[in-house]
């Protein structure tokens, strides 16, 4: 479809004008900063000053620290838990929207999903902080029923609420698109063969939407794994997640190389998870995304 109708000998100003911006900008402000992070993992801090070096000390130091591994495992487990939780919570809603809702309800739903996705996550977390606090609306209402007050902040519960706020809209959206793209005749065939709604869902719908469901869970994982705000402001900061470690090392510790080690480890983990997910979804290495 794309022609190459110009003789390639001359310099093609038009193509370069349109092709170059992304390349230049992304290299300068995306690749170089990330590359710098990787390089910095080998640098040293001598008398409070950052000096280029080539040492493995930062890696050694981090990898031998308990708090690093605790943090790593905690972050990973939490992200996996949230990914599963979000997928489970989202599924009945996505299923309803894809199969049972009227077109008008669907349009409204998509609008309501897309909008929070782009509106200040930070402010929404702040809002939860108020709602979940011991004097907040929820505890007041529990109080009317003679229950509580419940400690919903500064623990894993609070952090989880925050994480769900972050990834639920996206999870529902991706699942919804995956489910609505299934060939409806498959479902018709299942019903024809006597499968009830639940059995159909389990043995036909879910496998058919496998790719979308895996992608939704993967994105939930990626978002949660890297998030700082929820564990810091709703989770109380302990035990620290990797993101909190990074911020600590940077803002207060000012030890950028160590922060970089954590960051690079995170990126590496996420790339691995992404490839594993793509493999599980598409079944072949190097398959088209």
């Amino acid at each position: 479809m794309a022609p190459s109708s110009k003789p390639r000998r001359r310099f093609d100003g038009f193509a370069t004008f349109w092709g170059a911006p992304a390349l230049i900008w992304q290299t300068a402000f995306f690749l170089v900063p990330l590359g710098l992070l990787v390089a910095m993992t080998f640098w040293a801090v001598k008398s409070y000053r950052l000096t280029p070096d080539f040492t493995a000390r930062n890696w050694e130091r981090m990898f031998t620290r308990d708090y690093f591994w605790t943090g790593y495992l905690y972050t990973f487990e939490l992200a996996a838990l949230v990914a599963v939780l979000a997928s489970v919570i989202a599924f009945p809603a996505a299923h309803y929207l894809a199969f049972r809702a009227s077109p008008r309800a669907r349009r409204i739903a998509i609008f309501l999903l897309v909008t929070p996705f782009f509106t200040s996550y930070l402010v929404r977390i702040y809002s939860w902080k108020i709602i979940l606090s011991t004097e907040g609306v929820l505890n007041v209402m529990f109080g009317w029923l003679g229950l509580g007050p419940f400690e919903m902040l500064n623990n894993a519960f609070g952090a989880t609420i925050g994480y769900l706020t972050l990834c639920l809209p996206l999870t529902v959206m991706i699942q919804y698109f995956a489910l609505s793209n299934i060939d409806r005749s498959l479902i018709g065939a299942a019903h024809n063969l006597g499968c009830g709604p639940l059995r159909t869902t389990v043995s036909v719908t879910i496998p058919a939407a496998k790719i979308g469901l895996i992608l939704a869970a993967t994105f939930a994982f990626i978002l949660t794994f890297g998030d700082y705000v929820s564990p810091a402001y709703l989770g109380g900061g302990t035990p620290p997640t990797l993101s909190i470690l990074i911020v600590d090392q940077t803002k207060s510790g000012n030890h950028w190389p160590r922060a970089s080690v954590v960051a690079v480890t995170m990126v590496f983990t996420l790339i691995t998870v992404l490839f594993a997910a793509l493999f599980a979804a598409y079944g072949r290495p190097g398959a088209k995304k």
Partner: peptide, 14 residues
């Protein structure tokens, strides 16, 4: 796909 936190750190360094 890169966590904003890490982008922030990288850009701060750069």
């Amino acid at each position: 796909t890169v966590p904003v936190l890490i982008l922030g750190l990288g850009m701060l360094s750069f």
